[in-house]
Amino acid sequence: MSSEIDIKYVADLARLDLSAEQAEKLQQELGRVVEYIAELGEVDVTGVEPTAHAAQLTNVWRQDEAKSSFPREVMLANAPGIVHGDLIKVPRVLPSEEE
């Protein structure tokens, strides 16, 4: 298996802005780590079920009861920007008509 990471592609998937210098450094570092983790290829895992969770609990249910949650102003207190009193301000999502 190739241990070459396409760092630009992966950074795009993760929505991570990297400088060219950072990207090159990370490419090398992660290349070494991937080489190391590739050693798992030698383990015989035929017929072994995967473990997603150590607790092994399944189907944990609760009563479907309506409960009040945090007050709006408490949750909005951490928002970087607010508009119209109680809405989170976000940057433009769709390009403007001039663009």
């Binding site: 798992l40 290829g41 383990v43 072994v48 995967p50 997603a52």
Partner: peptide, 14 residues
């Protein structure tokens, strides 16, 4: 190759 295999080896470690 990585994630699923790691989960299987996790079973062996447990």
């Amino acid at each position: 190759a990585y994630y699923l295999r790691a989960q299987r080896v996790r079973t062996l470690i447990s």
